[in-house]
Amino acid sequence: MNKAVTTTSLALALSAALAVAAIPMTAHAAEKDKCFGVALKGKNDCKAGAGTSCAGTSKVDYQSNAWSMVPKGTCEQTTSPTSPTGFGQLQEFKAKSA
């Protein structure tokens, strides 16, 4: 238990937190790309739960209008058999016929 917490330490912690929070966010969300054409069937990343129309609804593997969040820069290196370039793309694309 933190019985030794003093009012001063609370103020110091808040002050430090405000200083840190003022620096622009570099969390993983900011470093991800929306990548089309790399999600496997039913595994696309739109997770809104039951009764919504988008959670896990891609019906075919590598569906070209379904996207996943992937580490930044890796999208166009991820293999996608439906993509004309052979890799995932940062925009929706028209699937080539298999």
Binding site: S9, L12, A13, L14, A16, A17, A21
Partner: peptide
């Protein structure tokens, strides 16, 4: 504490 506050 300061980490937790910064996150919030």
């Amino acid at each position: 504490l300061s980490n937790a506050l910064a996150l919030l």
